[in-house]
């Protein structure tokens, strides 16, 4: 989840949050496990999801799982077959950024959609699949 400019988080906290986005993510994951850092638990309050909290989601070894990176995104996305990117379409300050160049090596965008968020006028969802 990134703001304009690619900002992911500031002082360890995601730049923004929106319950409609987490519901969308949970719907995408379906019955698959959704792995997240412990601090993300509050974001899914009221959302029906198979949530697994791990200190290092990046190192999760659960096959066919979704992994949420809301405070930092690994530079190497080689382990992943699919990336779902949510854009807040808002200017937020950040000190951790997502380098979108990571998506140009080995991924292709297969879907773009927009929807109104609970507290954001417009959220853009992009899905990238490994080629």
């Amino acid at each position: 989840m990134i703001g304009n400019g690619g900002g992911v988080s500031l002082f360890g906290r995601p730049v923004s949050r929106d319950i409609f986005v987490f519901e969308d993510l949970a719907a995408l994951a379906g019955e698959r496990e959704l792995i997240a850092r412990p601090g993300a638990a509050a974001l899914f309050s009221g959302v029906r999801a198979r949530l697994t909290l791990l200190p290092d989601p990046e190192k999760a070894e659960i096959p066919d799982a979704f992994v949420l990176f809301d405070a930092a995104v690994p530079a190497d996305l080689g382990r992943f077959d699919r990336v779902t990117l949510y854009r807040w379409n808002r200017d937020y300050p950040a000190d951790v950024f997502f380098d979108e160049k990571a998506l140009t090596a080995g991924f292709t965008k297969t879907e773009t959609s927009e929807f109104p968020g609970n507290s954001h006028p417009r959220v853009t969802r992009e899905i990238y699949e490994r080629v």
Binding site: G3, L10, V15, S16, R17, D18, I19, R90, D91, Y92, P93, N118, S119, H120
Partner: peptide, 12 residues
């Protein structure tokens, strides 16, 4: 940007 962050947190 800081005002946006604060406003959206409050609204959410």
């Amino acid at each position: 940007p800081f005002e946006n962050m604060t406003a959206d947190y409050i609204k959410e």
